[in-house]
């Protein structure tokens, strides 16, 4: 099964979303801040990254830019997650290098659709 790296600083959200994804059959890895997210990508190479944009240490925007600037990491698809529903957030996320974007609260079927789409494209 594909492996998803979930980068999320909120413990409850991490617990909830990871369990829901596991139930759908995904392997889920967790990171609690941006730097840890990048480090884990380097060590375990997940199939996809779910990236919360408001993170401590290194925020999601920065993480996305670094990932896409790195030759070895740029192929890992990133879905940005934000609880801000600003009209330009989507644009910003895509500009930062994210492959897709979704808003919180998460609508699981919608998010799964995006995950499957990205994994299908890369496989």
């Amino acid at each position: 099964m594909p492996t998803i790296l979930l980068v999320e600083d909120n413990e409850m959200n991490r617990d909830m979303l990871s369990r829901r994804l596991k139930r759908k059959g995904y392997e889920v890895l967790l990171a609690i801040d941006g730097q840890q997210g990048i480090d884990m990508c380097l060590s375990v190479r997940p199939d996809l990254m779910l990236l919360d944009m408001s993170l401590p240490v290194k925020d999601g925007w920065q993480v996305a830019r670094e990932m896409k600037a790195s030759e070895s990491l740029q192929t890992i698809p990133i879905i940005a997650l934000t609880a801000h529903a600003m009209a330009d957030d989507r644009q910003r996320a895509l500009l930062a290098g994210c492959d897709d974007y979704d808003t919180k609260p998460v609508d699981l079927p919608r998010l799964l659709g995006k995950i499957e789409h990205l994994l299908g494209v890369t496989e």
Partner: peptide, 20 residues
């Protein structure tokens, strides 16, 4: 805007745990 951000995060928990 900040409050709305935090609330969206938190209500996601209600939905998520509820679904499970």
């Amino acid at each position: 805007s900040r409050l709305r951000h935090d609330l969206r995060n938190a209500i996601g928990l209600v939905d998520g745990y509820g679904d499970m």
